[in-house]
Amino acid sequence: FPNGLENDWDGTMYETLQGIQAADLPCGLQGLELVYTEGAWGEDAVRVLREYAASGEYDVILDNGGAMDNTRPFYQEFPEIMFVIVGTNPSEMVTGGNLYFIDKRLHEANYLQGIIAGMMTETGVIGAVGPLSIDVTNAEINAFIEGARSVNPDVKVKVSWIDSWYDPPKANEATTAMIAAGADQIFMRSDGFEACEEGGIACYGATTDNSYLAPNSVVADSIANWTPEVVWFINQWCEAKTSGEPFSSPDLMYWAGYADGGVSLSDYYQGVPQEVSNKVDELVAGFMDGSFEVVPNYSVPVSD
Rank of each mutant, 00 (worst) to 15 (best):
E282Q: 14
Q236V: 05
P250W: 11
L252S: 15
F233W: 04
A285I: 08
G262T: 05
K279L: 03
F247A: 07
V263L: 02
D260N: 09
S249E: 03
D289V: 09
E282Y: 11
D281H: 14
L283T: 08
W237E: 06
E239A: 15
G271K: 14
V280W: 01
W232C: 00
G244I: 11
V280C: 00
V272I: 12
D267C: 03
P246D: 02
S277T: 15
N235M: 08
T242M: 11
S248P: 04
Q274N: 14
Q236T: 07
M288P: 09
Y258E: 05
G261W: 00
V276H: 07
G257M: 02
Y258V: 02
V231W: 02
D260P: 06
S277G: 15
E245L: 13
K241S: 05
K241D: 05
D260K: 11
Y268R: 06
W255E: 14
S243L: 12
V230F: 04
V280R: 00
V231L: 08
A256E: 00
G257F: 00
V276T: 03
S243M: 06
K241Q: 11
Q274C: 01
L283W: 11
D260T: 06
W226K: 03
G286D: 08
Q274V: 10
P246G: 12
A285F: 07
G257A: 08
F287D: 06
S277Q: 13
A259Q: 12
S266A: 04
N235C: 10
G261R: 03
S266D: 00
K241G: 13
P273C: 07
V276N: 02
S264I: 00
W232G: 01
G271T: 09
V284R: 09
S222A: 11
K279Y: 14
Y254A: 04
D260S: 05
W232H: 13
A224R: 04
D267E: 15
G244T: 10
A256S: 13
D251H: 08
G271N: 15
E275G: 00
D267T: 11
I234Y: 01
Q236M: 14
K241M: 15
P273Q: 09
V276G: 04
E275Y: 14
K279V: 03
D289T: 07
E229Q: 15
A224H: 04
A224Y: 06
E275P: 00
N278G: 07
D281V: 01
